[in-house]
Computed example of a mutant assay.
Amino acid sequence: MSITTTSDSALYAARRDRLRRTLAALGHEALLVSHAANRFYLSGFELHDPQCNESAGYLCVTADGRDCLFTDARYRDAALRLWPEADLCIYGAGRFAAMARFVKDRGVRRLAFEAAGLSFETHARLAEHIPLTAAGMLVEPLRLRKDAGEIERMRRSAAINHGVMASLPDILLPGRTEGQAAWEIEKRFRELGASELAFAPIVAVDANAALPHAIPGETVITDGCLVLVDVGGRAFDYCSDQTRTVWVGDTPPERFATMLARVQAAQAAALDRLGPGMSFREAYALAREVFAREGVAERFTHSLGHGIGLETHEGPSLNPSADGLLEPGMVVTVEPGLYYPEWGGARWEHMALITETGCETL
Rank of each mutant, 00 (worst) to 15 (best):
A112C: 03
C359D: 03
A127G: 01
I221F: 02
A116S: 09
D72R: 12
A73D: 12
D237L: 10
V334H: 06
A268Q: 15
V61A: 10
F189Y: 14
I171M: 14
R18C: 11
Q180I: 06
E114Y: 07
E360P: 04
R110G: 11
M259V: 02
D272H: 12
N38K: 04
V290F: 05
A37M: 09
W348N: 15
L286K: 02
C68G: 09
L362M: 12
E150R: 14
L111H: 00
A73L: 12
T251M: 14
L88E: 05
C239W: 00
P50L: 04
R125A: 10
P174E: 04
F291A: 08
E298Y: 06
T6E: 15
L31M: 03
A78Y: 04
L59G: 01
V296S: 07
A352Q: 03
T361E: 15
A78M: 14
A207N: 02
L142C: 11
P336V: 08
S7M: 15
L69I: 01
A78N: 10
R255M: 08
I3C: 07
L32E: 01
E327C: 13
P253S: 08
S9N: 09
A346C: 14
A24M: 13
G344N: 05
A158E: 14
Y58I: 05
A235D: 04
D323V: 07
P201S: 08
S2A: 09
T301A: 09
A24D: 09
A182M: 02
V205H: 01
A73W: 08
H306N: 12
Q267H: 13
E178W: 04
T22Y: 03
T355P: 09
H302I: 10
T245C: 10
P131S: 06
Y238P: 04
V227L: 05
E349Y: 04
E121T: 11
L326M: 13
L286P: 00
A100G: 02
A292L: 06
A124P: 06
E349M: 14
V139S: 06
E140M: 11
D105V: 08
G163N: 09
T333C: 05
D8P: 07
R347D: 15
P84S: 14
L47G: 09
Q180A: 15
G275Q: 06
M330Q: 14
H306I: 10
G57Y: 00
R299G: 05
E349R: 14
C68E: 03
L23R: 01
A10H: 11
S43C: 03
Y339P: 06
E298F: 09
I151R: 11
A283T: 05
P169K: 03
R109S: 13
G307V: 04
Y339H: 12
A93P: 03
Y12D: 00
F280R: 07
E356I: 01
F189R: 03
Y41G: 02
A135K: 00
